[in-house]
Amino acid sequence: NLDFCTSLGQSYPGKPKIIRCRSLEKETFSCWWKPGSDGRLPTNYTLFYSKDSEENFYECPDYRTSGPNSCYFDKNHTNPWTTYNITVTATNEIGSNSSDPQYVDVISIVQPDAPVNLSLETKTSAGIMYLWAKWSPPPLADVSSNSHVYHYELQLKPEKKEEWETISVGVQTQCKVTMLQAGVKYVVQVRCMLDRGEWSEWSSERRIQIPNGESSPEKPTIIKCRSPEKETFTCWWKPGSDGGHPTNYTLLYSKEGMWFCPSDIFWNSTSSNIFKIDCLESCHGTATAQ
């Protein structure tokens, strides 16, 4: 019979491959596999697992919830402090073949869904316009649990530009963003991470038009610092848009972890935007505008 099957091109199944295991919230997890060739015969797939150093193997408790070629571990079968040894075996009439084992620590495979309900609005305070962004945690998040602490990042960019700016928000579900360009439409997204797991995908994009008129100044750019003789040095910067306001510029510098605001000198946007530090014997520095 074996020779007859082989002559028809039939064979035992190819080796399956476990492609991913993921937990959304540390309380359940799923694993997915990619089948190998079926040997031209009906092929069944069985997921087996053991826990930590146990010798006993158990079969997947749920092959349906997470879709085709998957196994779902519900709360009764998930322990975040346990390492799972997982193998998928393919079997047909002629024989079987097993995947390489996958060792799964639930805490390290946590990747939540993206945050939802991102909303944007512009507000004004003291004549300065800013963007106010709010969102909700992922739908499965249990925010009442101390074990579910989500950290967030927000990214935004002008609609017509390619480069995103990323802002670390912490555990808050809202963010105030200044330094906006008046008359520009912005694109905003947010994502989250649970404990030391992976970042979620970015949420759906939201867009908002910043009204024309007054706004925060744009970010200045330091374009050059130069020392002609190792005893003094000068730095130059390029201002951004002044946002429709008289704009002052302050250069701060640090030495060995300490920040200084030299002589509390301010310059407005009509200055030459040059700052000079004279390094004297103590090398604490004196500040002069050029």
Results as ranks from 00 to 15, higher is better:
residue 248 N to P: 00
residue 39 G to R: 02
residue 39 G to S: 04
residue 197 G to A: 08
residue 161 K to Q: 15
residue 260 F to C: 02
residue 67 G to F: 08
residue 122 T to R: 07
residue 52 D to N: 15
residue 7 S to R: 13
residue 285 G to Q: 08
residue 218 E to I: 00
residue 77 H to C: 06
residue 91 T to Q: 15
residue 129 M to C: 11
residue 257 G to D: 06
residue 219 K to R: 13
residue 134 K to D: 01
residue 73 F to H: 03
residue 267 W to R: 12
residue 174 Q to F: 15
residue 32 W to M: 02
residue 180 L to A: 04
residue 52 D to W: 10
residue 141 A to V: 06
residue 86 I to F: 02
residue 11 S to E: 08
residue 56 N to F: 10
residue 271 S to Y: 10
residue 277 I to R: 09
residue 73 F to D: 05
residue 12 Y to P: 00
residue 76 N to E: 14
residue 268 N to G: 11
residue 233 F to G: 04
residue 68 P to A: 13
residue 124 T to R: 11
residue 194 L to G: 07
residue 112 P to R: 05
residue 166 T to R: 13
residue 263 S to V: 00
residue 100 D to W: 06
residue 206 R to K: 15
residue 260 F to H: 13
residue 56 N to H: 11
residue 289 A to D: 07
residue 161 K to Y: 09
residue 259 W to V: 13
residue 152 Y to H: 15
residue 243 G to M: 08
residue 129 M to V: 14
residue 201 E to G: 12
residue 94 I to K: 00
residue 242 D to R: 09
residue 106 V to H: 03
residue 241 S to D: 13
residue 146 N to H: 04
residue 17 K to W: 01
residue 275 F to T: 04
residue 157 K to F: 01
residue 187 V to C: 13
residue 22 R to C: 11
residue 98 S to H: 04
residue 256 E to C: 01
residue 84 Y to N: 01
residue 198 E to V: 00
residue 166 T to G: 02
residue 22 R to M: 11
residue 28 T to C: 04
residue 106 V to T: 04
residue 117 N to W: 03
residue 149 V to M: 05
residue 209 Q to L: 14
residue 231 E to A: 02
residue 11 S to K: 08
residue 119 S to P: 00
residue 119 S to N: 13
residue 199 W to F: 11
residue 58 Y to H: 14
residue 288 T to N: 11
residue 29 F to A: 02
residue 24 L to S: 08
residue 9 G to D: 12
residue 16 P to E: 09
residue 186 Y to G: 02
residue 222 I to S: 09
residue 167 I to H: 08
residue 182 A to E: 14
residue 242 D to Q: 08
residue 227 S to H: 07
residue 178 T to L: 05
residue 28 T to K: 04
residue 177 V to K: 12
residue 23 S to C: 06
residue 113 D to H: 10
residue 84 Y to T: 00
residue 78 T to N: 03
residue 6 T to E: 13
residue 275 F to K: 01
residue 42 P to R: 05
residue 215 S to W: 03
residue 221 T to W: 03
residue 245 H to P: 05
residue 272 S to T: 09
residue 96 S to N: 14
residue 136 S to R: 05
residue 172 Q to T: 09
residue 160 K to W: 07
residue 31 C to V: 11
residue 246 P to F: 06
residue 253 Y to H: 14
residue 45 Y to Q: 05
residue 11 S to A: 14
residue 210 I to A: 04
residue 113 D to G: 12
residue 194 L to R: 10
residue 4 F to T: 14
residue 18 I to L: 15
residue 218 E to H: 06
residue 1 N to T: 13
residue 49 Y to H: 05
residue 195 D to R: 11
residue 214 E to I: 01
residue 179 M to C: 06
residue 227 S to T: 14
residue 7 S to Y: 02
residue 237 W to H: 07
residue 137 P to T: 04
residue 83 T to N: 12
residue 186 Y to N: 03
residue 278 D to K: 12
residue 258 M to C: 00
residue 49 Y to F: 15
residue 29 F to V: 03
residue 20 R to K: 15
residue 278 D to R: 12
residue 203 S to W: 06
residue 236 W to K: 07
residue 183 G to R: 03
residue 114 A to K: 14
residue 8 L to K: 15
residue 43 T to W: 04
residue 58 Y to D: 06
residue 238 K to T: 14
residue 290 Q to W: 09
residue 112 P to K: 05
residue 82 T to G: 00
residue 63 Y to P: 00
residue 176 K to D: 13
residue 238 K to A: 13
